[in-house]
């Protein structure tokens, strides 16, 4: 099992380098802002002294490399600065809004896997038939619209015309749940309030599905493509010539080798969801990172922008790490290779 750990350590190392790069990139982007962030934050009525004072506090007059150095040393202490928009530490803001976004993404990710993979398998197993054509069509439609379009359409159909789901929000106002982790699914369980748990689940379905649709389409398309390729491999013919039933071949012998390339793409789709969550949250008034993110961007709230992007990228890198580990686990070729490259 040593190679697995070696690969993992290596990947963590590379991820850290990449994350450092991300911080530089985003720091650089944030500092080329035209206009004075201090002036924007204080408003037109502020005096020149007030602006100068804030500029000094924000170290805006120092060279960018010094600023970045300060940023890094603060980051090392878990400090991402103060948001000019909320006047609170960025870390606190993110800790408040991130769980709602993550909850949405996890549910959407689960939908993507639970719906997308079987669709892809079915499509490949019955390739060339009407089942295949129907699934391919649905999958292509899924990837052909941004998630806000799906959000709007789903909302119109299943919240307004057929009022099956709530129109907006994370949970009905009637429930007062104490915030412990920020994840409603956990907090409602901690409170032992099953009705609230059900209510939260009922609220998450529509936005999560809107968010998942393009991932479902992508997963189904990729799984199909990989499996069709696998179906031409000698080992599938071997399984066939030994009379292994079609169903078992599809779900086991052709599926597992095909899953390896699919997994990598599923990881990337998770990343896309981190961005697309902004769109879905806006439609369903989901109290996640989206409104905060868009607000701080529009207000040119430097520390908050850098912090938000950094946290999102870190989340993305962690998800990719998990995918890498999963790929290693199901792909014995990597697990047992001596040259862990």
């Amino acid at each position: 099992m040593t190679p697995t750990i070696l690969i993992f350590v290596r990947r963590v190392g590379i991820s850290c380098i990449v994350l450092l790069g991300v911080s530089m990139l985003i720091f650089a982007i944030a500092r080329v802002i035209p206009g004075d962030p201090a002036r924007i934050a204080l408003g037109p009525s502020a005096t020149a002294e007030q602006v100068a004072k804030l500029r000094a506090e924000l170290r805006l007059d120092e060279p960018i490399t010094t600023q970045y150095g300060h940023f890094l040393s603060e980051l090392a202490q878990g400090d991402l600065g103060i948001s000019l928009y909320t006047n609170r530490p960025v870390v606190v803001d993110i800790a408040q809004f991130l769980p709602a976004t993550l909850e949405l993404i996890f549910v959407a990710g689960a939908m993507m896997i639970v719906i997308g993979l079987p669709l892809g398998i079915a499509s490949a197993r019955w390739r060339g038939t009407w089942i295949d054509n129907a699934i391919r069509m649905i999958a292509l439609l899924g990837v052909s619209a941004p998630s806000f379009v799906w959000a709007v359409i789903l909302m119109l159909l299943f919240a307004y015309f057929l009022p099956l789901f709530p129109i907006a929000g994370r949970i009905s106002d009637t429930f007062a749940i104490e915030q412990v982790t920020g994840f409603l699914f956990l907090d409602t369980l901690i409170a032992g309030n099953l009705a609230a748990f059900g209510n939260a689940a009922w609220h998450v379905i529509l936005p999560a599905f809107a968010l998942a649709l393009s991932g479902i389409g992508q997963t189904a398309r990729l799984t199909r493509a990989n499996m069709v390729e696998t179906y031409d491999k000698p080992y599938v013919e071997m399984a066939r010539s030994y009379g292994v039933p079609d169903r078992r071949i599809a779900n086991r012998y052709a599926f597992k080798p095909s899953l390896i390339p699919s997994l990598t793409i599923i990881g990337l789709d998770f990343a896309a969801m981190l961005g697309n969550a902004f769109l879905v949250e806006a439609v369903f008034a989901w109290p996640g990172l989206s409104r905060y993110g868009v607000s701080v961007i529009l207000r040119k709230d430097l520390d908050a922008i850098v912090g938000t992007v950094l946290i999102i990228s870190a989340t993305f890198l962690i998800m990719n790490l998990i995918v890498d580990v999963l790929v290693t686990i199901i792909n014995p070729r990597i697990r047992y290779s001596r040259t862990a490259s």
Binding site: K233, P234, Y235, E237, M238, A239, R240, S241, Y242, G243, V244, P245, Y253, K256, P257, I260, I330, N331, P332, R333
Partner: peptide
């Protein structure tokens, strides 16, 4: 299908690629 693998079986050209790589 019931006959395959029981009453008749097959040996292939390339043994390594005829065995499933992930099992």
């Amino acid at each position: 299908q019931r006959l395959r693998g029981t009453r008749m079986t097959m040996v292939f050209q390339d043994p390594t690629s005829s065995l499933n790589p992930v099992y």
